[in-house]
Amino acid sequence: MLKISNLHARIEEKQILKGINLDIKPGEVHAIMGPNGSGKSTLASVLAGREHFEVTEGSVTFDGKDLLELAPEERAGEGLFLAFQYPVEIPGLTTTNFIKTAVNEVRKYRGQEPLDAVGFLKLMKEKMSLMEMPQSLLSRSLNEGFSGGEKKRNEIFQMAMLEPKLAILDETDSGLDIDAIRIVANGVNRYRNENNAVLVITHYQRLLDYIVPDYVHVLYNGRIVKSGTRELALELEEKGYDFIKNEVAV
């Protein structure tokens, strides 16, 4: 589904990604872990198409298409979703209105008829109960005054509404208490099926107690330096990132 080959990227003059290789197949959950500054969020940004990041080498294909040639909104249309580490607050735009526009844009891109008010409401209701998304958040301005947990819950709700093939969760657990993590993780687990995939980017292993990965990769200094199964995450938790740094140094 997603194939990253030798990906190099920089922001301004600073080279951050220095040759990433990663292959994600439908039905899989991958986790990328790594210390601060290793390039985790840059990878998420490059995949979603954030400006100011320049790809200097390598390629990314998504279901056979050259992802890097697509605009961010086209990537979303193709089925890529990024749950933001810092969701943006937009006063004056209701969450419902935002999501309705997004859903119909994506439907349009996929050649589907736009949903009318009734159809949209029905879809919202269904996903709201699935994602434990309170109605009160939907009529408020997008993310404005939302708690950290509410913002992340809103991200996962958007994911459920847009039904992506690949969801990238960028530090979705940061700033969340255990209860909020559990709700968000439940949402992700309910969305999962054999046709879609999840890429979890996280600093800590605790999120992986709830969203159980098939593969764990350690990103350090712009490269994936170690890959393994869930046990690798537990090992990192126990030993800290220093052991990776030492291994790399050797």
């Binding site: 979603a48 909104e73 943006v88 004056g92 935002f98 526009t101």
Partner: peptide, 30 residues
Amino acid sequence: IDTEAMFYLKSRGITEKNARYLLMHAFAED
């Protein structure tokens, strides 16, 4: 225009033009 807000909307599949409309309308809302 807030580029991060713009990117947020685009990352949800919203085209540049429509994202701009939503942001300007939101700005005008009060």
